[in-house]
Amino acid sequence: MMGEPWFLGLVAGVVALLSVFSVLGRVLARRTRTPEQREVALNLNARVRSWWLMIALFAAAVILGPIVTLLLFGLLSLMALREFLTLTPTRLGDHRALFWCFFVFLPLQYVLIGIAWYGLFAILIPVYAFLILPSLAAVAGDTRDFLARCAKVQWALMLAVYALSHAPALLMLELPGYALPPAMLLLYLMVVVQISDVFQYVFGKLFGRTRLAPSVSPSKTVEGLVGGGLTAIAVGTGLCVITPFSALQAAGMSTVIVVLGFLGGFTLSAIKRDLGVKDWGRAIEGHGGVLDRLDSVSFAAPVFFHFTRYWFAA
């Protein structure tokens, strides 16, 4: 696969695109006058840097195989989970439940993808974890804020582990008539989500007038959503060549990804508001920021996975 012309073309295209972004970012950073402009340039450059990293990791994963992809996503889940839980107040009575989240449910979820046991993968967290975790907390005997604490722990696991694990789970789909490796579907998901994220930001900064919901996220605008969303759908439709979808189906799929990605970023903004933090990276200096980049993926991945599985899998 690596030697085939279309793959080399894809790699060359992505590298060229990112190089253009990097150069643009440099130029932009040098031309800034006001602090606000500098903030925008810094934000864009941070995004482009994490793109390079993601593409490098992804290339490594494709070349080294699905085990490496699973390990990488497992690690991302771990970082996202600890970011979420570090900023979420829990009590001593939750300690055992937290331990199970990190050392039982997280690894098990990824092992289940590795052995392609779809049945248990789909219910491990929503059935078993969601019954066991509150039980552990109840056995600990502390009933103060019990319901709220259970909800926090479950949401952490749901977002950081369950939802995110659906991205690498695309690798276990068997799609009849699809000649390319399923890793291309993962690439497709990531590219559409990220294009949507970045262009929503760019369009929002350039043309943003109408704020969508200032109480949740002051930077999200209708203009940004429409501009970024349409750009991502256009790119997603063009990329139908690396998917099992027709152009029309790819347009539908990327619309689903864009909408869910937007809702992910939006919902995580509401959670951040509730916890009183601006972004995960700044709140946990030196170690944070994974959730800032993966919030949209975590919402888009499960739905994209199930749509693909329902309509295209064997």
Partner: peptide, 14 residues
């Protein structure tokens, strides 16, 4: 929260 008094379990929070 990482290693509370009385528990042998480490939870890797930051």
């Amino acid at each position: 929260r990482v290693l509370p008094k009385g528990s042998p379990l480490i939870v890797p929070l930051i």
